[in-house]
Design a protein around this nucleic acid. Structure first.
Lengths: 223, 223
DNA sequence: AAAAGATGTGGTACTCAGTACCGTACTGGC
DNA sequence: GCCAGTACGGTACTGAGTACCACATCTTTT
């Protein structure tokens, strides 16, 4: 068979991950990647603004999807909106599988990549904060509370993702649900302190009632 | 008088801030900075690993001071320790005055500097998280809660610092105290399960509300 | 006082990321 | 057929960052 029918962009990403993984980030030049992908150096920079960006090839897409999910939410269901938006990111990375693991290794060992990842995460966080801030009622501390919740969600997400990447968690969706319960419990707990009410938030669909029940039980016990 | 008795390092920082401010970051080369400071280009890179680093000249010092303050704390006074450590950073930037404002303008307009700042902040956050995690009792969610509190503190700090940089706050120390009260109120409020309200977050769903309700009921009864 | 180190410095040469610009091949539409 | 839009390759350039060498000053040792 001749050249595979994949786009130059995909070949560049594959070649970059491969070379970075076996040879290291600093030891791999953009020329190497381009040659391995069978394209010119110019083409690399046309698709990815920098050598680091090729590690996060769908970052912009993800960002847009998150913005879309947040735009679809409203003040009444803000918790659900932000939870689901964060879940979008989690699912993407989990769905990547090995590629996510290679990225994790690279990020852990190459400072410039770690900085890049942290900056990416902050973009998500800013989207969350802006959405939450827009939904909040007029309070002196509304912006602060929005930023706090946004950072908490991102922290919970990263906590779970990292644990999954290290193989410490089997079901990341489940773990994220639990982490979010911790987050929302805190945020709500201090909200207006209304007593006696019961709030049920169904974050995501796709499982059996038995699984739901088990999740609820874990949540209650975790208290 | 001959050359001022300030060190080459200080002259480099001053020259860099001056040139970045009037001419812009990208339009200023390291050669320009070195020439303006009256030193060679080599000397610049000997003091600052990169062109960005000169914007955060005392970052390592600050990091060490924070680590020191956190090491001086213990589990019983963890809230005080982290608050004071964060205050260290706030005081440093506020004490810088104009330089902090120039940095803020630069960071706001130059993406690579913004990324750098965010990475710096994350280093503080990691210090907080590690300290808090070490102080926490053994809980399944101890690490998560530590990370959440660390991110909340950093978020509160940044919130106040940015407001002060924009001139929206007169007394940053006071504002930070208030922000920290919001943070700690949330963290404590949900800590040991304050009585009265009940928040249930169902992790996975997708069935009808009736099924969820039934599942919840079974869960509660089964407990 | 002389030798030996430590430290800070300047200069040169090199690699490589990133940009600008130009020419070319391949599309679809008229 | 022509033409516009798009994707690609090549060349040349700027500038960040590294490696290495030479020099000057200062302190310590003998």
């Amino acid at each position: 068979m001749p050249t595979a029918p994949v786009s130059a962009r995909d070949r560049l990403v594959a070649a970059a991950f491969d070379l970075f993984d076996v040879r290291g980030f600093d030891e791999t030049t953009v020329d190497d990647i381009a040659k391995a992908a069978g394209v010119g150096r110019t083409t690399f920079f046309r698709h990815f603004g920098s050598k680091e960006s090729v590690i996060f090839p769908e970052h912009d897409d993800l960002l847009a999807r998150i913005a879309g999910r947040l735009d679809a939410g409203d003040a009444a269901s803000s918790d659900v909106a932000v939870s689901e938006a964060a879940r979008l990111v989690l699912r993407y990375y989990v769905g990547e599988g090995d590629r996510a693991r290679i990225r994790y290794r690279l990020i852990s060992s190459v400072p410039v990549l770690k900085a890049r990842e942290i900056a990416s995460i902050r973009q998500y966080q800013s989207l969350f904060a802006r959405a939450l801030s827009g939904w909040a009622e007029d309070d002196v501390d509304a912006v602060l509370r929005a930023e706090l919740l946004a950072s908490a969600i991102v922290t919970a997400h990263n906590h779970v993702l990292r644990r999954w990447l290290r193989g410490e968690v089997d079901d990341p969706e489940d773990a994220f649900g639990h982490a979010m319960s911790v987050v929302l419990e805190q945020a709500r707990g201090a909200g207006q302190g209304g007593a006696g009410e019961t709030t049920v938030v169904v974050v995501r669909g796709g499982s059996t009632p038995e699984q739901v029940a088990a999740a609820v039980q874990r949540t209650l016990k975790g208290q």
